[in-house]
Amino acid sequence: MKFAILVNEGPYQHQASDSAYQFAVAAIESGHEVARVFFYHDGVNNGSNLTTPPQDDRHIQKRWSALAAESGVDLVLCVAACQRRGMVDEGERDRNKKDAINVADGFRISGLGQLIEAGIEADRLLTFGD
């Protein structure tokens, strides 16, 4: 089955991102496809490479980046949500004249159309949120 995932909450405060990640891993291990994970609202903060959790805690961003590298899952951060929350890639840095980049490897910034498209193309769209 082809899955798409929507993550609506940021890392550590809510379990949503953890549950979404664990679902994605379990689905892929079971032979399913996870085509895209779309991060919306505070969920875009999952893509920040500036996070440094304590060593004995899970590293939520690195886990997602590794999943993208290993399984080719498309990790998409909503552009409007990113702009409000200071999530910046090269394109956004240049467009909005910022002096830093913090979008981690494996993540890309794009529009809400990517969420709708995922809903149309996937067999199931699952929401993880509050």
Partner: peptide, 12 residues
């Protein structure tokens, strides 16, 4: 980058 018209022809 966004808002592109979806050409897949699928309606859900």
């Amino acid at each position: 980058m966004e808002d592109e018209e979806y050409a897949g022809g699928v309606q859900k």
